[in-house]
Design a protein around this nucleic acid. Structure first.
Length: 274
DNA sequence: AGACGTACCTGACCGC
DNA sequence: TGCGGTCAGGTACGTC
């Protein structure tokens, strides 16, 4: 599921059903996720959900006892609203609400993470204190971005994936942002001009917002908590389009390469590396 | 600093 | 049908 638009979509869908509801019981799989499921989740019993927020790929659910449940979906995690009777493989946390619907964290690969912290300082908790501004925050702007990258010797794709620089962009949207900005994902950061930084930042926000408006991207059989699928995958211009025609009518085809171990899609004609 | 491999996991898919 | 290989929307760690 999990880049910024998908996390935002999940958050909104669960908020719609669960805001104001009280947790009357909970259970866990007991299996280790990225970290062990914490013991202190018991503190959520009889607590009402009062707020949802998000930073980058981290989702935060606030409770009335000033505790915040931080959830990271990893590669394969998802949140569902389910009927009480419905149970599936890889359900790792089930929050039973007073409306008899369950909020369920499901994650086959178990790269996700769950942590319960104090609401007051959830943003400075160890688990996310080192991440940069959320890609949709105003503090992620061209000036900031240029300052961050102007002396870096790595490539643009790696920059966009680096959550310490900007939080929320993952492998799909990194390719899409480079394509839209007409800059090669291989371009070295210190060679990127302030003007290009403007383009990269504004295209990042534009693409992420468009993806949110379409309910994110659904690869394979992923669905949103309400059972609907995201639609942004139908608007990919680069991602997963290897060997297909570049949509800029340049008579080239989209290429697939590997950058820092991740598949990367781009048009070597339209996306400049100089 | 950063490139790179490896590790953490399960499941889907493909070729044989 | 089964088996082995590869790949997957993420991140952390060690090593060079």
């Amino acid at each position: 599921m999990p880049e910024l638009p998908e996390v935002e979509t999940v958050s909104r869908a669960v908020e719609k059903i669960a805001l104001g509801k009280k947790i009357i019981n909970l259970s866990t799989s007991g299996k280790k996720l990225r970290r062990p499921i914490p013991e202190n989740l018991e503190l959520l019993k009889n607590q009402k959900i009062i707020n949802f927020s998000r930073k980058g790929k981290f989702l935060a659910i606030d409770f009335e006892n000033s505790k915040t449940l931080i959830i990271h979906l990893g590669m394969s995690g998802n949140l569902f609203i389910k009927e009480e009777s419905s149970k599936s493989k890889h359900d790792h946390l089930i929050l039973k609400t007073c409306s008899l619907k369950n909020i369920v964290f499901n994650d086959p690969r178990r790269f996700g993470a769950i942590k319960l912290v104090n609401t007051k300082n959830w943003l400075s908790d160890d688990i996310l204190k080192n991440i940069g501004p959320d890609a949709l925050e105003s503090s992620f702007n061209a000036k900031y971005f240029y300052e961050q990258i102007k002396n870096r010797k790595t490539n643009l794709k790696s920059i966009l994936l680096n959550q310490k620089i900007v939080a929320g962009i993952g492998n799909i949207y990194a390719s899409e942002i480079c394509f839209e900005s007409k800059i090669s994902p291989l371009k070295l950061a210190f060679k990127i001009s302030p003007e290009s930084c403007e383009k990269i930042v504004s295209n990042s926000k534009m693409i992420l917002k468009k993806a949110i408006s379409l309910g994110g991207s659904s690869l394979k059989d992923y669905a949103n908590p309400d059972g609907t699928k995201g639609l942004f995958q139908n608007h990919f211009k680069a991602f997963n389009r290897q060997n297909l025609n570049c949509l800029n009518n340049c008579n080239s085809r989209i290429e697939k390469i590997v950058i820092s171990g991740r598949s990367t899609f781009f048009c070597s004609t339209c996306q400049k590396n100089n």
